[in-house]
């Protein structure tokens, strides 16, 4: 599914988080929103998910206006920065949540739900952790469970907020690889937020560099490295 962001601006009571940002995300791409803390990356991602409404501008999914669409109707698989796993549910129940929450006529039977959850746990290479609770998992395992939970709803796109932020370097590398593989296998349009340029450059097809609520440059990693469009991009990618 392709995503069009047209002049999206966002004011919070305390100030402006986004200034009329426009961006076109081709179907099936793996995109990184890269920028320092406070540059508006999370805000833009939440607007795509429908968790935040823009002050002005529109969002289109496959050409259709989605600006006023509710979170539930957007079917965006979202991986939160702190994972936001349901702490009182087992891993199995977490992953099954989205399927069980469907209205009766589209809800798969319980046996089918179990089959799908099992398949997802295999996909994230944690086939045996179904009965565990989130607080019995390592950070990397939580992150993968959050990804499986997001994938369970058969999302139209995948949105990840600093998915590797809180993890140590080795786990991070593995999970980056894992995300790339899952993206390539599912073909989902994927947007992930990061403040780490190495991560963005290594993983993404297209990098969107942001600063202070504006997009500074959009380009392939090699392009951005070779021809930074602004002083900010030059300084940020040199760091």
């Amino acid at each position: 599914m392709n995503i069009e962001i047209e002049d999206i601006a966002k004011d919070f009571g305390t100030g402006r988080a986004l200034y009329a940002v426009s961006l076109s995300i081709p179907s099936g791409a793996l995109i990184a929103l890269l920028g320092p803390s406070g540059s508006g990356k999370t805000t833009l991602l939440r607007i795509l998910a429908g968790l935040e409404y823009p002050t002005s501008g529109r969002v289109r999914f496959d050409g259709a206006d989605a600006t006023g669409l509710s979170v539930q109707d957007r079917r965006a698989g979202f991986v939160f920065q702190s994972y936001a796993l349901f702490r009182h549910m087992t891993v199995f129940e977490n992953v099954a949540y989205g399927l069980r929450a469907r209205p009766r006529r589209t809800r798969p039977p319980e046996a089918e739900i179990a089959r799908r959850v099992t398949r997802l746990l295999e996909l994230i290479q944690l086939p045996d952790i179904g009965p565990r609770y989130p607080n019995q998992l390592s950070g990397g395992q939580r992150q993968r469970v959050a990804l499986a939970r997001a994938l369970a709803i058969e999302p139209r796109m995948l949105l990840l907020d600093e998915p590797f932020g809180a993890l140590d370097a080795r786990v991070r590398k593995d999970l980056c690889q894992g995300l790339r593989e899952i993206h390539d296998r599912t073909g989902l349009t994927t947007v992930f937020v990061t403040h780490d340029q190495d991560e963005a450059m290594a993983l993404a097809d297209l990098v969107v560099v942001m600063s202070m609520g504006r997009i500074e440059q959009v380009g392939r990693p090699a392009e951005i490295r070779a021809r930074p469009a602004t002083d900010f991009v030059r300084a940020f990618t040199a760091a």
């Binding site: 998910a49 429908g50 968790l51 979170v71 539930q72 957007r74 079917r75 965006a76 698989g77 979202f78 939160f80 702190s82 936001a84 796993l85 349901f86 702490r87 009182h88 949540y97 989205g98 929450a101 469907r102 939970r149 997001a150 369970a152 709803i153």
Partner: peptide
């Protein structure tokens, strides 16, 4: 609000989120 927001993105209606996430927690 993170868990409630997660439930929203998973498609759950408000009353269901209240009963299955907010109250049990």
């Amino acid at each position: 609000r993170a868990e409630e927001e997660a439930a929203l993105t998973l498609g759950a209606p408000g009353w269901r989120i209240f009963l299955t996430v907010t109250l049990p927690n």
